[in-house]
């Protein structure tokens, strides 16, 4: 992989629509996840198999993260947050397959994910507080803060996509440079490091999306009581609106 990740070329076209490599890889990931989900859920049982137990653990971990972060029932947000996490994770790790360039190494995919989070934040905020209530949050703590809050809504979404894009793209770029200069086996440690980076970036993207949505839902209100609280779970701090600025 010696081409610049900033450049993207269509592989083929469907009518006037050019289909690029990230789209194809995303389709493959969608197909794999759909097939895996269908095969897994056909054999669900009260006494779980090893695979079912692992997948239930993944789902419960996602629920715990949502519950701890938002102090709300995770059922409403599970599909969005969970899908973003799993997709970003698999997209980041797809670089391990030779010849495959991760979709998240292209800014279009990261922008699509950030755009979905942006829209979801607005939609969940309006649904929870009403249109007036949600717009009123921009005037908190004072109307003077309205421009800053509007800018913050945009910049934090932008920072979300730039963070993911920069980390993944840089990893691919570095591996490509090292591979072109050193040889076949030298980039392996860097690829292993990309595994860790990919997992961390998937977690950060998902947890920041949760924080943004949680802030829009619960800002200025008391944290709602979870419908299915876990007794052993310690209450987490209420989501901070500026958590994305780290």
């Amino acid at each position: 992989m010696t081409g610049s990740p900033l450049e993207i070329t269509p592989l083929f076209s469907i009518g006037p629509v050019p289909v690029t490599a990230p789209v194809v890889v995303t389709w493959v990931i969608i197909a794999v996840l759909a097939l895996f989900g269908i095969l897994l859920t056909r054999r669900l049982a009260l006494q779980p198999s090893a695979t079912q137990a692992v997948m239930e653990g993944v789902v419960e971990t996602i629920d715990d993260q949502i519950r701890d972060t938002m102090q709300a029932d995770p059922a409403t947000y599970r599909s969005l947050i969970g899908t973003i996490f799993i997709f970003v994770l698999l997209a980041n790790w797809s670089s391990l397959i030779p010849g495959i360039e991760p979709p998240t190494a292209h800014i279009e995919t990261d922008a699509a994910l950030a755009f979905i989070v942006f829209i979801a934040t607005i939609a969940y905020g309006i649904r929870a507080r009403g249109l007036g209530g949600y717009l009123a949050t921009f005037a908190e703590p004072s109307w003077v803060m309205i421009p800053l809050n509007v800018v913050e809504q945009i910049t934090r979404t932008f920072s979300l996509l730039v963070r993911l894009f920069g980390n993944v793209m840089s990893g691919v770029f570095v591996v490509g440079i090292v591979l072109s200069l050193a040889g076949l086996l030298v980039p392996i440690p860097l690829m292993a490091l990309d595994l860790l980076t990919g997992a961390v970036q998937a977690y950060i993207f998902a947890i920041l999306a949760t924080v943004f949505i949680g802030a829009a839902v619960s800002e200025g209100k008391e944290p709602p009581r979870p419908e299915t609280p876990r007794p052993e779970a310690l209450p987490a701090a209420p989501p901070a609106k500026d958590a994305s600025k780290g």
Binding site: L33, P103, A111, L113
Partner: peptide, 21 residues
């Protein structure tokens, strides 16, 4: 690509919601 990826992610959200979560 941006539009297709947006649609792809929304489709993936639906598929995983329906067949996984």
């Amino acid at each position: 690509t941006l539009g297709l990826q947006t649609v792809n992610v929304l489709v993936l959200i639906f598929i995983l919601s329906r067949f996984f979560f």
